Simulated scan of single mutants.
Amino acid sequence: MSLIADRVAHEGSASQPIPRASGVAATRLQTRIVSGSEWDHTIAGFDEVCQEQLHAFAATRWPSVTQEPMLFLSDGEVVGGALVMVQKLPLGLGKIAVSKWAPMLKDNAHPDADVIHADMVEAMVADYADARGHMLSVLPRASIGPVNREYERLEARGFKRGSELGFPNRYIVNLRLSDDEQRKSFQQTWRRQLNKSEKAGLTFEHAAPEAIEDFNALYGAMTDRKQFTDHSAYETVPALMAIDVPALRPELFFVRHEGELVGGALIFKAGDRAVYLYGATNDKALPLRAGYFMHWHIIRWLRDNTTATWYDLGGTDGFQGLHQFKKGMVGEAGVIRPVPPVANYASKPLAYLLGAGAFAARDAVYHVRRVIAGWRNPKTLPTQRRDADESAE
């Protein structure tokens, strides 16, 4: 799930930052670093809020780094934010400031949204790169439009291209369609499989948070059956389900056949883009086409119960079957867009050299681990061509 922060060396302070003013302001914005609790409550109403930017998630996923939740204000009003993770480099040679899926806009329809985003980037550069001497590493989320303007803005500011995913595409469903429009949007094969699933005697259930233990059992059995090493952030699920901000708590869905649990999903629903976090099925799910049935009903539930415009299905990890399944669901009305490369910036050449070198070393280690995993279990090897046509337009 994480390309960059997962590869940050596990050193450094995990102390909770005390709320304070950062002392640095962009041309138009002021910044304020706040506590994790205040941060999660504040960003719950952001259009661009996402799981990776939650303090409850990051503090569990990366406990050895310093979490700095930074709010951006214009004339005293919060307009955006970025959860920044500050990590020491080995031997105390320097520090890297990492922010994934950021900076986030509170209102992405604001008439000055582009200016606000540029000023948030400027404030981050002024604080982390100029004042502190860190390398700043930013990863914007995939765009809905054909051009990722946030990434272009970073490049124009002097950020340099860094690490990138081997299979960067995200598969994003349009939620603002009627049932008839949505079914027509699905690719023909996907729609045919959905029709068959609806005749298989399946039932769909929106479950209470307390039912997470049933999902845990299903997920554990699935990973044991597939014999895949789980590199996801599943260890963060208890913290996410216990979060005291209902809007940020993932929703749990089940599919049953004759009373037996055959499939389930955890969905992040806040903001303008809902996200498929985790799914699990048993052996009976495939012939029953339970995945088609489940996602169809999740799409309808998100449309009717949230303000989200889009449903992000995530990537494929290089598996052709997932590509076909998600591409068919995205259909004609959705989009397939890549996560851009990481963008790195440092005010001082030595800071950039050390930071970029640390990430290059991490990328090399990660590559070796993937090769070894492929030798041990060929099922983990990608089956999707990197140059495959993944357009949904």
Rank of each mutant, 00 (worst) to 15 (best):
2 S>M: 00
4 I>M: 12
6 D>G: 12
10 H>W: 00
21 A>P: 04
23 G>W: 11
26 A>D: 07
35 S>W: 00
35 S>A: 09
35 S>T: 06
35 S>D: 07
37 S>D: 14
37 S>Q: 09
38 E>K: 03
38 E>M: 09
39 W>T: 02
40 D>K: 01
43 I>A: 01
46 F>C: 08
48 E>D: 15
51 Q>T: 13
53 Q>N: 11
59 A>C: 15
59 A>K: 15
60 T>I: 08
62 W>E: 03
62 W>I: 11
65 V>T: 13
66 T>L: 14
68 E>F: 09
71 L>E: 03
79 V>Q: 02
81 G>H: 07
86 V>W: 07
90 P>S: 04
91 L>Y: 11
93 L>G: 00
96 I>Y: 00
96 I>N: 02
105 L>P: 06
106 K>S: 09
107 D>R: 09
107 D>T: 02
107 D>W: 03
109 A>S: 10
115 V>Q: 09
132 R>T: 10
132 R>M: 14
133 G>L: 13
135 M>T: 12
135 M>D: 04
135 M>I: 12
139 L>I: 12
139 L>C: 14
144 I>Y: 09
146 P>H: 06
148 N>Y: 06
149 R>P: 06
150 E>C: 12
175 L>F: 06
179 D>Y: 01
180 D>A: 12
181 E>I: 07
183 R>E: 15
186 F>H: 08
187 Q>C: 01
192 R>A: 09
193 Q>L: 15
196 K>E: 07
199 K>R: 15
203 T>A: 04
206 H>Q: 12
210 E>H: 10
213 E>W: 00
213 E>A: 14
215 F>R: 02
217 A>E: 11
218 L>M: 10
224 D>P: 00
226 K>S: 01
228 F>H: 08
230 D>S: 11
234 Y>P: 00
236 T>H: 02
238 P>S: 03
240 L>D: 03
250 P>Q: 14
256 R>P: 02
258 E>T: 07
260 E>V: 09
260 E>P: 04
260 E>A: 15
260 E>G: 05
262 V>D: 01
262 V>C: 07
264 G>R: 01
264 G>A: 10
268 F>V: 11
271 G>H: 00
272 D>G: 06
276 Y>S: 05
281 T>F: 05
283 D>A: 08
285 A>S: 12
289 R>Q: 13
291 G>V: 07
297 H>L: 04
298 I>T: 03
301 W>H: 15
302 L>F: 05
305 N>D: 10
308 A>F: 03
308 A>L: 04
309 T>G: 15
330 V>T: 06
330 V>Y: 10
334 G>M: 10
337 R>I: 06
337 R>K: 14
338 P>N: 13
339 V>S: 11
340 P>M: 14
342 V>P: 00
343 A>H: 11
345 Y>T: 06
352 Y>K: 05
352 Y>T: 03
354 L>M: 08
355 G>M: 10
357 G>C: 12
364 A>F: 13
366 Y>A: 14
371 V>T: 09
373 A>H: 08
374 G>K: 05
374 G>W: 14
375 W>S: 01
376 R>P: 05
376 R>A: 07
377 N>Q: 05
382 P>V: 07
386 R>A: 07
388 A>I: 13
389 D>I: 03
389 D>N: 14
390 E>K: 07
391 S>R: 13
